[in-house]
């Protein structure tokens, strides 16, 4: 299982994939927004995605965004 965590304090601007989707390594899972910049968060490894955030939510550095199993 691969955990995808936030690298910085940010707002979850867009959730690109749906809960339970099959994703491949490098697919964009969500797009964060911090300091007027969009930061795509990518899957590291392929599998089924389990999302831990929703659009509009604020994440702190290190917060879990999703797991890919």
């Amino acid at each position: 299982m691969a955990e995808v965590r936030a690298e910085m304090v940010a707002n979850v601007w867009k959730v690109v994939v749906a809960q339970g989707d099959q994703v491949a390594d490098g697919d964009t899972l969500v797009i964060l927004e911090s300091m007027k910049m969009e930061i795509p968060v990518l899957a590291e490894g392929s599998g089924t995605v389990d999302l831990k955030v929703e659009e509009g939510q604020v994440v702190q550095e290190g917060d879990l965004i999703a797991t890919v199993e």
Partner: peptide, 12 residues
């Protein structure tokens, strides 16, 4: 407020 390598935001 961004890292000097990738220029990604770094609030704090």
């Amino acid at each position: 407020a961004e890292d000097a390598k990738r220029f990604l935001p770094s609030p704090g």
